[in-house]
Write a protein that binds this DNA or RNA. Structure first.
Ligand SMILES: NC(=O)c1ccc[n+]([C@@H]2O[C@H](COP(=O)([O-])OP(=O)(O)OC[C@H]3O[C@@H](n4cnc5c(N)ncnc54)[C@H](O)[C@@H]3O)[C@@H](O)[C@H]2O)c1
Ligand SMILES: NC(=O)c1ccc[n+]([C@@H]2O[C@H](COP(=O)([O-])OP(=O)(O)OC[C@H]3O[C@@H](n4cnc5c(N)ncnc54)[C@H](O)[C@@H]3O)[C@@H](O)[C@H]2O)c1
Lengths: 256, 256
DNA sequence: ATGTCTTTGTGAACGCGTGCACAAAGATGG
DNA sequence: CCATCTTTGTGCACGCGTTCACAAAGACAT
């Protein structure tokens, strides 16, 4: 999700819906698996199952790309792999920089999963002088002072931020100023970017909180509608100012 | 999103929309920041800016929780922190297990960000005997053989999978069989789970591919409106001809 | 050719999410 | 107590995304 103020004015590019774009990599992964097993063709039903989506949705998604199927048969696996790759822009080389080579950054650098697709780690950057020159994933970490030059020299347009939250916005600003127009942010902060720059975020903590919500709901299912269990009524913690609210802290789960 | 066959039958729990739930952690983070700076109240406009969303959306989101604001003033920060925490189920303790303590798993274990909210790492589990007993993030790694016992002993209902893709489904099955009902999956695979189990996934590679798509689009912007054949350097294989393949592959395209 | 069978591609209906715009609520000042 | 000003809470409209259901397209057998 593009963070920042931008409610994208729709994918105005009269083409592929955002939701579809987000699923293409999923299809691509499933297709790659089939390709490796030398499966020649696949039906929408089979592929949908492999990708974990509804088959009608898959067909509609593909219809945005063109008519690449054959009725009565299905889709040619190799051909589809190529078409989706091209649509996603994976037939070209994408040099990326990774900023903040700490625990997470180092793990990401060691991850081979994205190097396999068009992505290539052009540089690892960290602000800690002690890190500079150290080899991570077979690559020497470079100092943040050279960030602008590195981006320029390598024609980088995609950056990954794995610094502490406090440094993220600053790093982001420098990346953008240097010409980066797509950012993947692992730091738990909202990044502000100018129009034309895409930001996507990955946040473990948020994912867990969403799971916890549903988990809590499951636990309180069946009877207790007011999702309230042992000690939810945390007494003091409420810190509820004396006014509003149906006094106490009635968990008004539902309202008119 | 719940992977697998289940298209969730909507958040049938007559209550908070899924999209709203996904934003609550964002609001919570912004509010926590305000709380630490001892800001007593905040308007929807200010908070929305801090969370990177539209203020109308924020107000509507909060309206699902109840009427916790004061017109003409705004929202009481502490009170709202509590309400959202409670709604997300963060007022209780959530023991979690992490399976697959490799590069990524270790980085996640070292991450303090989720330990601060109700989450507590109950155990680190790995199948590699060489890992067993090793200390990661101040905690001894336990062997996968004991997975069921660990989950049972600690009352774990949330699991994190950071194993290689090939092992993920198997690990997932064991987690579910042992009683885990929420899974956060970092392995690039679609997990099949029975109804009632939630799966969320984090996939760096997918995020980058989505960014690449938009990046490619930006590059080809300005003129060519007919977004059929973007002038990528792909020579012949543009349309439907039987020719194909970036990496010299089997053509085999009978697609007319 | 012709018929049958499979599977695509898509029109249409529906539901969810978003954002606008405004009335109502309450604070604040006189 | 009344007037004014601020900000919430929400009715409403709109657009996107999902799903159903089916006609059309093609493969394949006869
Ligand atoms: N580790 C995880 O599993 C995890 C999970 C989710 C989110 N996060 C987030 O990812 C970020 C990194 O986490 P981590 O555990 O790797 O932290 P870390 O402290 O191990 O690493 C941070 C690195 O960033 C570098 N750095 C700091 N300021 C910088 C700057 N201005 N420019 C360049 N480099 C800079 C530091 O030198 C350090 O090497 C944090 O924001 C964290 O909240 C981490
Ligand atoms: N490292 C990353 O940045 C990154 C990013 C995105 C996705 N991923 C994915 O996350 C997963 C882990 O990546 P990694 O780099 O940490 O790999 P890794 O090889 O370093 O670690 C995998 C760990 O899982 C353990 N393991 C294997 N089978 C197991 C089983 N059945 N039960 C328990 N443990 C088992 C291994 O012993 C190993 O310690 C992979 O699927 C990878 O594709 C990683």
């Amino acid at each position: 999700m593009a963070t920042g103020r931008t409610h994208r004015p729709a994918t105005r590019s009269r083409g592929i819906p955002e939701a579809t774009v987000a699923r293409l990599p999923l299809y691509l992964r499933a297709l790659t698996g089939l390709s490796e097993r030398s499966v020649p063709t696949v039906s929408s039903e089979e592929l949908a199952a492999a990708a974990g989506v509804n088959s009608a949705k898959l067909r509609k998604d593909f219809s945005y790309l063109g008519s690449y199927g054959t009725r009565g048969v299905g889709y040619d696996v190799e051909y589809l792999v190529y078409q989706i790759s091209r649509e996603l822009g994976l037939t070209q080389d994408w040099p990326i920089v990774m900023v903040g080579i700490g625990n997470l950054g180092a793990a990401l650098a060691n991850y081979g999963g994205f190097a396999s697709r068009g992505f290539r780690v052009a540089a690892l950057i960290d602000a800690d002088p002690a890190m500079t020159g150290k080899s991570v994933a077979g690559m020497a970490v470079q100092h943040a002072d050279d960030l602008e030059k590195i981006i320029d020299d390598n024609g980088v347009s995609i950056g990954v931020i794995a610094t502490p939250a406090g440094a993220a916005q600053q790093v982001c600003d420098r990346l953008v100023a240097a010409g980066v127009t797509s950012i993947l942010n692992f730091a738990p902060t909202v990044l502000s970017v100018p129009d034309g720059v895409d930001v996507r975020k990955v946040d473990l903590s948020i994912e867990l909180q969403i799971l916890a919500f549903h988990e809590q709901r499951k636990a309180g299912e069946g009877q207790d509608d007011t999702a309230d269990e042992a000690g939810t009524e945390t007494p003091a913690a409420a810190a509820k100012p004396a006014r509003k609210g149906p006094d106490g802290d009635v968990p008004a789960v539902m309202q008119a």
